[in-house]
């Protein structure tokens, strides 16, 4: 066997290894989704979605938790997207490449790796106590905004860095100011990537329970929040609460709530993909 043949074998082996890795992840996901569907799908009906929490598993519903999740999602998006995208633009377009920038960059990347419960403790001290927001949806959303900011910043930077330099130069050559260039050329061109980052960030926020428990999200709330200062519950906390209850009925409920949470996430991803593909059609270089 000569060297070319061994290399071909190695090549094939790596290819199969790659296929295996891809399907391994997907298979695990499929097993999990099927298991949850089998356990919980029969439990989902309108009552389950519209009922308040209850001690009877068959009467308990997720209405307040679902509403809380929607509030958290919207508020987190409103707070985190502008700040994150703006920070990303500053770092990439305006910030100077010096030591300070390097330290800033390392710290932002590090922030993305901090366990979420630490953000919960931070949020409890700053937003709940010092800022006096109490155990409110707003305090929860601010905490989760901190949690997802690094993801948005990093993805914004990556996607505007991928915008060709020639595009910026052409815009500047035509007399556009720096801001006009960013707003009219760079952001639309990088929009798809930014949107992907935003969706990843919000999907993460929707699935968090630990930091919100610390901040003071509750498990039994008999009303949906009507202002950002109301108390709230979210789906992951309801799931966490139900899955550890002794009665089998609650475990079924938690499977059903997981399905709803998955649907919320899939819907969000779907909307984002739709907008991204429309966006990309518009951008012509």
């Amino acid at each position: 066997m000569n060297r070319i043949q061994t290399n071909r074998i190695k090549d094939k082996a790596f290819q199969y290894f790659g296929v295996f890795c891809t399907f391994f992840g997907l298979a695990m996901l499929a097993v999990f989704v099927l298991d949850v569907l089998r356990k919980g799908i029969h439990r989902i009906d309108w009552d389950f979605i519209s009922n308040l929490p209850s001690r009877f598993p068959e009467k308990a519903g997720i209405f307040t938790a679902l509403m809380g999740t929607c509030w958290i999602l919207i508020l987190t998006a409103i707070i985190a997207i502008p700040i994150g995208v703006a920070a990303g633009i500053y770092l990439e377009e305006y910030g100077k490449r010096n030591r300070f920038a390097a330290i800033l960059e390392i710290n932002i990347t590090n922030l993305a790796g901090i366990p979420s419960i630490i953000y919960g403790l931070l949020g409890l001290e700053i937003f709940v106590r010092i800022a006096g927001l109490g155990q409110s949806v707003l305090a929860g959303a601010l905490t989760l905004s901190l949690l997802v900011l690094p993801i948005i910043i990093v993805s914004t930077r990556e996607s505007i860095r991928a915008v060709p330099r020639s595009l910026r130069e052409a815009s500047l050559a035509l007399g556009a100011s720096k801001w006009q260039t960013i707003w009219n050329q760079v952001l639309p061109a990088g929009g798809g990537g930014i949107l992907t980052g935003v969706i990843l960030a919000l999907s993460r926020a929707v699935g968090e329970a630990a930091p919100l428990i610390v901040v003071g999200a509750l498990a039994y709330v008999p009303f949906a929040p009507s202002t950002p200062l109301d108390e709230f519950s979210v789906l992951p906390i309801q799931i966490y609460n139900w899955v550890s209850r002794p009665q089998q009925g609650f475990v079924t409920n938690s499977a059903a709530a997981i399905i709803i949470l998955l649907i919320v996430t899939f819907l969000m991803n779907g909307i984002a993909i739709y907008f991204r593909s429309r966006w990309q059609k518009k951008v012509k270089w």
Binding site: S54, R55, I213, A217, Y220, V221, P222, N241, R245
Partner: peptide, 29 residues
């Protein structure tokens, strides 16, 4: 306590019938 939680949840649920305009919330930290 998350151990005591189910009792408080049950009481809060029943209390809703007793006094509908009192908002009782229960957490499990």
């Amino acid at each position: 306590s998350s151990t005591v939680y189910p009792i408080s949840e049950a009481v809060a649920e029943e209390f809703r019938k007793e006094a509908p305009s009192v908002k009782v919330t229960v957490g499990l930290s």
